[in-house]
Design a protein around this nucleic acid. Structure first.
Ligand SMILES: Nc1ncnc2c1ncn2[C@@H]1O[C@H](COP(=O)(O)OP(=O)(O)OP(=O)(O)O)[C@@H](O)[C@H]1O
Length: 820
DNA sequence: AAAACTGTAGTTTTT
DNA sequence: CTACAGTTTT
C-alpha cells in the first residue's frame, strides 16, 4: 500500500483528508425579489463590468473556469432586474441542450419563473423552432422531420442507387462527408458543382449532393446541418422576417462561441447586425469541434466584425486547484498556433494528479470503480460529484460493468443516444405516421416492422407509384387493389392501413393519456410481441423493453409539461410583456391528445434523454470529453489516456489535428475541481483485437511534480516508440472485463423509477400479482394458465398456456385478468 | 418474395 | 466486436 492509501483489496487509509476545504457546495447568492445590484456581489470587477454592460457588442475571451458562463447568466438576470428587459427579447445560445437546461436553471434561481420566457437553447433547437413557424417560406411543412446521421446515410444510399453509383466503388460515407462538410461551410449544391469544374469525382459528388437535398425537401425532412443553413436562407430571403427577429431579439448571447461554424456565424451576424447588442463568450483553447466545421477565427475576428466592441478578459480561475490548473496550462502551452493567455487561481495547491497505469482494461475499470467507492465511503464525495470521461464512447463499456459489479449507481450520457435506438425510432415512426399520413419516411420505416410479410420489392413499387402520382405512400397502400402490381400484397397492406386507422380513431377519441396512447401503439402494432418472440433465440429482451418503457415515462413527463392546465395563470406576465407576440411559443401547450402528439414530435428529434438531470439522484456520470465541455465535477476520472486513443490515431499524422486533441486534453483536465485521476492501461481490447498502446504523449507534457504515479509508470516518461518496442505482443485472451460483462444481469441504464405515468387497465393484474400456475383470462385468447414467469425490466415476461397454445407476453401490458 | 444465414469491412468526437 | 451487404434457403 502506498502513501495515498490506494489498495484494491483493503479499505485503505484516510488519504483524502484535506480535500474537503475547497469543494463544498458552492451556493449561488440568494437574490430573490431584492435589489438587482445584489447580483453583482458574487462577481469580480471584470465580471461586474461585463454584467453591467447593456448595449453594444461585447467579447469575453477567457480561459477555462474563469466564470464566463456565470457572466452570461448573471448578465441576463441583471438586464431583467435592473433594466427591465423583457425576457422574451433575450436570446441565449448554448452548445448542448444540457448546458441550456443548466443555464435556464441558474437563471431561474436568480430571477424566478420569468426565466421561462427567455429563448435559451442550442442553435439547432432555437432555429428549428423558428423554422417550423415559417416553414412555408422555405418550402417545408411545419411538421418537417429532422434526420439523424443514420437516416442521412440511408438517404445517401438511396440516392446512389437512383443514380446508379456502385457502393463497391464509392463509399456512401464519403458522399455524406462531402455533403455535411459543404453545408457546414455554406456551400450549396450549385456552388459545389461550380467549384467542381472538370473534376469528374467532384462532379459526381455534386450530383449526389443535389439529389440528396431534393429528396429531403420532397420528404419534408431536414438534416442537422439544414437547420442552420435554412435559417440563414430564411433570414436572407425574407427581409420582413429578419426585421421581425432583429426587433424581437434585442439582446443576443452566445456561449462557447469558439465552436461556431459558418452557418451559425452567418445567422448570428444577420440577427445581431441591426442593434449590435451581442455578447459572445468563449475560449480559443477550448475549440474542439473543427471536425464539424467550427472555426476559431469566428471568435478571433469578432473585434473586426464589430469594430469598437468591448473586450473583457477574465484571468482568474474559480474552479480548480493550483495543481490541476498548472497541469492544464502546461499541456496547452505546447500548442504552437495559439495566443497565450493568463489564467491563475487563488485556490489551494490541492492533491497531486493520480496517474494509474493498469495492466489490463479490467484493472483499469476495477481500479476506477474501487477508487470512486473508496472516496464516497470516506465521505469525500458523493457519487454525483464524480465524472468518468473518455475520448471514445466505446471506452465506457468496461467501466460500466465494473461499476455495476461494485453496485455503484451511474448514468451514461451520449453515445448511442436514446432516440437513435431502433425500437425508439420505430415507435416514433408509428407516431409520426399517425400524426401525418403523408410522412413517407415514417411509412417506409415501419411498413414491415414488425415483420408482416411486406418486403422491399413491394415497398419499392409503392414508392414508385406514389412518386409518379404525387400522392403519399399511405394513399397508395390504401388503394392497393387498384394497382396490378400490388394485388398480391393488397390484403397485407390493408391490414396495415386498418391498424393505423385504429390508432387514429383512438387519437381522435381523445380519451387516453399520452403515455397510454404510446403504450397502446407499442403493443397493438405488434412490436413488443415481436421482441418477445425473438427473445427465444437471442435473449436480448431486457434492454429494448426497458427503452420502450423509458419512452413511456418520457411521454408522461412531456404531457405533464405541455398539457394545458387551468391553473396556469400567465395574465400578469402577459400584460408585462404584451408586445411579445411570440410569447405563446415558449410555453406551447395543447389540450388534446392529437395536439400533444404533434408537439411531442416537434421536440423529440433534437432532445436526447439525459439532457435534463434529476437533482435528487446520486450517480456517477459517464460521458465523452466532448460532451463534458462547459461542465464541472468535483472529481474527474479520465480513462483510456493512451497514444492512439487520446490523441486519436486518426489525428497524430496532422499537426493541426494533434493540436485539437491537445485542446481536448485541456478541456478534460479543466473539468475537475478538486481531484483528477488519469487512468490508462498497457493493453486493451480495441476494434476486436488486443492492442498495446503507449501512454499518451500529453502526459509527458505535464510537469512530473504534479503527478503521482501508480502501476506501470516507468513508461510514462519514455518515448512512445520505445514504449511500444518494450512491450511484447500480447496473445489475445478473454479478459476479466468481458467475462464480467457477459455474466451480469443487473439493469443497464439506471434511469428507472419514473414509471408512474402509465395507468393500468381496471381489473388487470399487475406484474407482481402474477404467479406461476395462476389461471388468467386474456381479452383475445381467453382463459389460460401461467406456466412461466421471468422478471424483466421492472415487469415480467410470462408464458401462458391457452388451451395448448403457448403465448409469451409482458405481464404489465397484456392486461390479464384473474381467471375462473 | 421474404426470412434466415454468412461473410466482410470498418470502426473519434456531436447537433 | 459490430453492423450491414450479399447470399442462400424456405
Ligand atoms: N466571481 C466568482 N466568485 C466565485 N466563484 C465563481 C466566480 N465566477 C465563477 N465562479 C465559479 O467558477 C466556476 C466556473 O465558472 P463557469 O462555469 O462560469 O466558467 P467558464 O469560464 O464558463 O468555464 P468553461 O470555459 O470551462 O466553460 C463555477 O463553479 C462558478 O460558480
Amino acid at each position: 500500500m502506498d502513501e495515498f492509501g490506494f489498495d484494491l483489496t483493503s479499505g485503505g487509509s484516510d488519504f483524502f483528508s484535506e480535500l474537503d476545504s475547497i469543494y463544498n457546495n458552492v451556493t449561488e447568492p440568494e437574490v430573490g425579489a431584492s435589489d438587482a445590484d445584489e447580483l453583482l456581489e458574487g462577481l469580480n470587477p471584470e465580471q461586474k463590468e461585463a454584467v453591467q454592460h447593456l448595449g453594444g457588442p461585447l467579447l469575453i475571451l477567457a480561459g477555462a473556469g474563469s466564470g464566463k458562463t456565470r457572466v452570461i447568466t448573471y448578465r441576463i438576470a441583471y438586464m431583467m432586474k435592473k433594466h427591465n428587459v423583457a425576457p422574451g427579447s433575450i436570446l441565449a445560445i448554448t452548445f448542448t441542450n444540457k448546458a441550456a437546461n443548466e443555464m435556464k436553471e441558474r437563471i431561474t434561481a436568480l430571477v424566478g419563473d420569468r426565466s421561462q420566457y427567455i429563448w435559451c437553447g442550442t442553435f439547432h433547437s432555437i432555429f428549428a423552432r423558428i423554422l417550423r413557424r415559417h416553414a412555408d417560406l422555405i418550402g417545408y411543412d411545419r411538421n418537417f422531420t429532422i434526420l439523424d446521421s443514420d437516416d442521412q446515410l440511408k438517404m445517401v444510399k438511396q440516392v446512389m442507387q437512383e443514380l446508379d453509383i456502385s457502393e463497391k466503388m464509392y463509399k456512401p460515407r464519403n458522399f455524406l462527408y462531402e455533403i455535411t462538410n459543404s453545408k457546414n461551410h455554406m456551400v450549396s449544391p450549385e456552388q459545389y458543382e461550380q467549384l467542381a469544374g472538370a473534376d469528374t469525382a467532384r462532379q459526381q459528388n455534386a450530383k449526389v449532393y443535389k439529389r440528396y437535398n431534393m429528396k429531403l425537401i420532397e420528404n419534408n425532412a431536414m438534416d442537422f446541418d439544414d437547420i442552420l443553413v435554412n435559417m440563414v436562407k430564411l433570414l436572407k430571403g425574407n427581409p420582413d422576417i429578419l426585421e421581425f427577429y432583429r426587433n424581437k431579439f434585442g439582446y443576443i448571447m452566445v456561449d462557447e462561441y469558439q465552436d461556431t461554424n459558418q452557418p451559425q456565424y452567418n445567422a448570428v451576424m444577420l440577427l445581431a447586425k441591426g442593434h449590435n447588442n451581442i455578447c459572445v463568450v468563449g475560449d480559443d483553447d477550448q475549440s474542439i469541434y473543427a471536425f464539424r466545421g467550427a472555426d476559431v477565427r469566428m471568435i478571433l475576428n469578432f473585434e473586426k466584425d464589430f469594430p469598437g466592441c468591448q473586450v473583457i478578459k477574465l484571468e482568474q480561475n474559480y474552479r480548480s486547484t493550483k495543481t490541476i490548473l498548472s497541469a492544464a496550462n502546461e499541456v496547452i502551452a505546447n500548442n504552437k498556433s495559439r495566443k497565450s493567455k493568463a489564467l491563475r487561481t487563488e485556490g489551494n495547491e490541492g492533491d497531486k494528479i493520480i496517474v494509474m497505469n493498469a495492466d489490463s482494461q479490467a484493472v483499469e475499470a476495477a481500479w476506477t470503480a474501487d477508487t470512486i467507492k473508496h472516496m464516497v465511503q470516506k465521505g469525500k464525495f458523493a457519487y454525483s460529484d464524480v465524472a468518468i470521461l473518455y475520448r471514445m464512447n466505446a471506452l465506457s463499456r468496461s467501466v460500466e460493468s465494473a461499476l455495476r459489479d461494485k453496485g455503484i449507481p451511474f448514468r451514461i450520457y451520449g453515445g448511442m443516444r436514446f432516440y437513435d435506438r431502433k425500437e425508439i425510432k420505430d415507435t416514433l415512426a408509428y407516431l409520426r405516421l399517425i400524426n401525418d399520413s403523408k410522412d413517407d419516411l415514417a411509412f417506409d420505416r415501419i411498413i414491415n416492422v414488425p415483420k408482416r410479410g411486406i418486403g422491399d420489392t413491394t415497398v419499392d413499387k409503392i414508392r414508385a407509384i406514389a412518386a409518379a402520382e404525387h400522392v403519399s405512400m399511405m394513399d397508395v397502400a390504401r388503394r392497393a387493389s387498384q394497382y396490378e402490381e400490388l394485388m398480391r400484397s393488397a390484403n397485407k397492406l390493408y391490414g396495415f392501413c386498418k391498424l393505423i386507422d385504429e390508432f387514429t380513431v383512438h387519437l381522435e377519441e381523445d380519451e387516453m393519456s399520452f403515455p397510454d396512447f404510446v403504450d397502446y401503439v407499442e403493443n397493438e402494432s405488434g412490436m413488443i410481441q415481436e421482441m418477445i418472440d425473438q427473445r427465444e433465440s437471442k435473449g436480448e429482451l431486457t434492454d429494448r423493453v426497458e427503452n420502450l418503457k423509458e419512452l413511456l415515462s418520457e411521454a408522461a413527463e412531456f404531457e405533464k409539461n405541455h398539457r394545458t392546465s387551468e391553473e396556469t395563470d400567465n395574465s400578469e406576465l402577459q400584460s408585462e410583456i404584451e408586445d411579445d407576440e411570440f410569447l405563446e411559443e415558449e410555453t406551447a401547450t395543447a389540450d388534446t391528445l392529437r395536439g400533444i402528439l404533434a408537439l411531442y414530435l416537434e421536440n423529440a428529434a433534437l432532445y436526447s434523454q439525459g439532457d435534463s438531470d434529476d437533482d435528487n439522484e446520486d450517480y456517477v456520470k459517464l460521458m465523452s470529453i466532448h460532451s463534458s465541455k462547459g461542465l464541472e465535477f468535483g472529481a474527474v476520472f479520465l480513462i483510456g489516456v493512451e497514444d492512439g486513443i487520446f490523441p486519436s490515431y486518426k489525428s497524430i499524422a496532422s499537426a493541426a489535428d494533434t493540436e485539437e486533441e491537445r485542446r481536448l486534453m485541456y478541456v478534460a483536465i479543466t473539468r475537475a475541481k478538486k481531484n483528477l485521476f488519469i487512468v490508462l492501461t498497457r493493453q486493451r481490447m480495441l476494434f476486436g483485437q488486443t492492442q498495446c498502446l503507449p501512454p499518451s504523449r500529453f502526459l509527458r507534457e505535464i510537469n512530473p511534480e504534479h503527478l503521482y504515479r501508480m502501476g506501470n509508470m516507468r513508461e510514462v516518461q519514455k518515448q512512445p516508440s520505445e514504449a511500444v518496442n518494450s512491450q511484447a505482443r500480447v496473445i489475445a485472451r478473454r479478459n476479466i472485463a468481458s467475462a464480467l460483462s457477459s455474466g451480469v444481469t443487473t439493469k443497464k441504464d439506471t434511469t428507472g423509477g419514473m414509471r408512474s405515468g402509465v395507468a393500468k387497465k381496471p381489473g388487470a393484474l399487475s406484474p407482481a400479482e402474477i404467479k406461476d400456475g395462476m389461471k388468467v383470462r386474456h381479452d383475445r385468447f381467453g382463459s389460460g394458465i401461467v406456466i412461466k414467469v421471468e422478471p424483466v425490466a421492472g415487469d415480467a415476461l410470462i408464458t401462458v398456456d391457452f388451451d395448448g397454445m403457448r403465448k409469451n407476453m409482458l405481464a404489465g401490458t397484456a392486461g390479464l385478468k384473474k381467471g375462473e
